[in-house]
Design a protein around this nucleic acid. Sequence first.
DNA 1: TAAATCTGTTCCATTATGCGGGATTGTACT
DNA 2: AGTACAATCCCGCATAATGGAACAGATTTA
Lengths: 258, 258
Amino acid sequence: MSSVQSIERAFAILDVVAAHPQGLGVTEIAARVGLPKSTVSRLLGTLEGLTAVSRHHKNDYFQIGSGVMSLVVRLPFQQNLVLLARPFLLRLAEQIGEDVGLCIPDGDSAFYVDQVRHDGAVQVKDWTGARLPLHVVTSGRLFLAARPDRQVERYLKRPLTPYGPGTPTDPAQLWQRLRHIRETGYDWSLEEFAPGLNALAVPVQNGADEVVASITLFGPSFRFPAGEPAAVVQVAQQTAGQIREQLLAFGQKMEIGD
Amino acid sequence: MSSVQSIERAFAILDVVAAHPQGLGVTEIAARVGLPKSTVSRLLGTLEGLTAVSRHHKNDYFQIGSGVMSLVVRLPFQQNLVLLARPFLLRLAEQIGEDVGLCIPDGDSAFYVDQVRHDGAVQVKDWTGARLPLHVVTSGRLFLAARPDRQVERYLKRPLTPYGPGTPTDPAQLWQRLRHIRETGYDWSLEEFAPGLNALAVPVQNGADEVVASITLFGPSFRFPAGEPAAVVQVAQQTAGQIREQLLAFGQKMEIGD
DNA sequence: TAAATCTGTTCCATTATGCGGGATTGTACT
DNA sequence: AGTACAATCCCGCATAATGGAACAGATTTA
């Protein structure tokens, strides 16, 4: 499995440039990536031609260019969310030692858009791409709980089809559950959806405090959750907060430094 | 001025991948960039190793990966805004045939963070990096007008130092001007700041309708504005709206399609 | 003001490096 | 089993990228 050297070098350079938003010159970049100046100059020239980097008006220092941004900007929100969240999900999956999923609301369904796998002998299924009714999964109930009462009422009027051994099908029981979610900000499912499968979901909010997604932790019931459930909830909520910060950084937060 | 072929090819591939969020296979990508499959396979392999692209769990189709996102995510909001806005500013500059600037509020100053130049014999200065008091420039007055009354009052208490022949220095006069901005959503400066220089600023808002930046059009007074001023205002406001959309797409908007 | 010391770009001989046609493997569909 | 398509691998070839050295600006120092 061979790899193209100059592309690897180009991205090493982009990494360095991105890590120094104030801008760097050719010599400094060359020193940091450990390559000769002439090579770096040529690579930067190419990247500049592609607008992957650009030079600051005044001092000619290199910065990330609009070409990189345009790759990201063209994507639908759903995919951006995945890209934005993945580094955090990876870390969470490592901390917990189980699979971590990302889910967004889609009408009256919960739509699983990403899942970071934890490699082990016993794995849970990859739900990516699956769409399930709100009341049958933890993520879905989070989305439901976030809606105003009258919308919840409307959902509860419809028949609550069971999907697993413990799917809540009684409206009153589900209402009680949603109230609990509103108070605590999470939802556990202990072998409700499928035998031997436990799950926890916590909401991801945006700047307007709307629930735009949820993080789901899945694991076989014989080992998950390990230790204090409250501790698991805490790290999951912490991760959700970090993703929220990232979302904010784009659309709203205003930090001016120089 | 030589350029590195494989990097150009890599970005051509990234462009194609970004343009097809649903994902594409090697063969399709190869066809679109006009290169042999084996070459594209190798380049994609390299990009995958760098997480610049990733494969969709199920169908192995290529999508933009988190490596690209991480280049963008690390940047401060100010720089992201510039990257995000630049394509729109470029088009605006071309439509109007004058320089277009981007400005953000920074305490009691207006901070010019970018300027797209229009090449012509007679140019206006590049203000990038400049910081000017709110009351002396169009962008600054926009920011001021967006603040609640009591904050405006506080600003008006301080001495209003003049910077140009027409700088408004009388608090009552400035108040009147701010009210006009609140009604219309723009501010013209006709040779106020410097002799021979006209400018127009319109606000850029985020999802919470806060004014996070402003677009400024600059031009020599002998030719700018050309034609109907109202028409110029209109295209500027339209551009501001487009930038707002882009900001929304990251942090808030929820469009689910498949 | 000339020497010194930075900077970034260009040149060009060298060869490692990337290229791509074709073979091979893998997967899906009849 | 057989067809059809996908993606990857192989490997000889030569092109394309490399990097040392020379060059050209800019800024600093004496």
